[in-house]
Simulated scan of single mutants.
Amino acid sequence: MTLAPLIAVPLAAALSAGLIVLLKPLLQRYALARPNARSSHTMPTPQGGGIAIVGAALVAAALLTSLFGIRLVGTEGAALAFAVLVLAGVGAVDDIRPLPASLRLVVQTGAVAAVVATAQGRLLPEGWAWLELPAALMAGLWFVNLVNFMDGLDWMSVAEFVPLTAFLAGLGLVGGYAAEPALVAGALLGGLLGFAPFNRPVARLFMGDVGSLPVGLIVAWLLFRLASQGGLAAALILPLYPVADATLTLLWRMRRGEKVWQAHRSHFYQVATVNGFSVMGVVARVFALQFALAGLALITLLWPFWPVTLLCLALAAGLVGWLLRRFATPRP
């Protein structure tokens, strides 16, 4: 057990909020998101707050690894930090001047591949390594993009990932999660908390691709590390809402023959605002659901028996399905 994740939260939160205050005039000038037909906002709003989230998380994690003597094995830490910076850089450029989808995909694939190739732990037996690595690459690439897709409403990313990262950091504090990813989870949690006041509905600042892409990569790595140390069911349950919303929306758009790489407003959480839910009503429900999923994930770790695991997976799927159905149904 180590106190590093606990210390990382206020440290990264202070750094994140401070960076936002310093950078906001520049973002207001060079990275202004103007509303269009696919936007959820109605006023021009600066984007790029993810610079502060990611920067604060990296700095806090780096400082505390030295202070507490925590080291990622081999090149895992360096590869993760490099990949996060690459995605942040591409996202920053894309926020200011949109890049071709093909170029973004190539860069994302390289970044995810670097993390997958160096990540410690495996899920499948040694003889199946040939299948695990490409499967992890595809899953990681999709997760990075779905986090980007799901960042389309004020506080949505905060509602999705504050409970998740808080759960993982807390798990590390009691010795149920490796010290290295627990520290990273605490640092990312702090970065999100420092950003949250500026993104509160109605948002004065958006995260932007500079934040959503690297946050997606970090969370994917955190979940892989959790799964590789015996928490596969928990790793599936924790991100189930954003995975379900983004995946079902993608499949239905493909079925309708739409260009899936183009921006749209057909995610369940976006449709909910058309169906009579307020923005705060949407994110509050997602926030509550994420805490419920964290509770189910904890049960699978405390009682790792297959009947308990199957029951928790079924309950998680039922809760997520219920909320998606609520969002898709017009309110009276």
Rank of each mutant, 00 (worst) to 15 (best):
G190Q: 01
A244N: 02
A60T: 04
T300H: 03
G191Q: 09
P330V: 02
D151N: 07
A57R: 09
D245H: 05
A179K: 11
V59M: 12
D95I: 00
D154L: 06
A297G: 15
V286S: 00
A52T: 14
F268E: 11
L64D: 07
A88M: 15
L248H: 08
A13Q: 04
P304S: 06
L313Q: 06
V115A: 07
L6P: 08
W252F: 15
M1S: 14
L296D: 10
P242K: 14
P44N: 02
L85A: 14
S39W: 02
A316V: 06
A185S: 08
E180F: 15
A139H: 12
G194H: 08
P304R: 06
V21Y: 05
L6K: 05
T273Y: 03
L11M: 12
R104I: 01
V271R: 11
P10M: 01
V90K: 00
G318H: 08
V279F: 04
V282H: 02
V283I: 07
A227W: 03
L188Y: 09
W221C: 05
A31M: 06
L240S: 08
R200Y: 15
V162D: 11
W130S: 07
S212Y: 10
L205D: 02
L64Q: 10
L240W: 02
M150H: 14
L324R: 13
R34P: 00
P201T: 03
F206N: 03
I53V: 15
D94N: 02
H267R: 08
G281E: 05
A79G: 05
A37E: 15
Q108L: 11
V308P: 00
A288G: 10
L189T: 05
L222W: 04
G121R: 03
H267G: 04
V144P: 11
R265L: 08
V282Q: 12
G190A: 04
S278D: 11
A316P: 05
R331Y: 03
S212N: 03
V286K: 01
W306P: 10
D95T: 01
V162W: 13
A81K: 11
T109Y: 00
W142D: 10
G77V: 02
F143Q: 09
V162S: 13
L32A: 01
L137C: 13
I70R: 03
L315D: 06
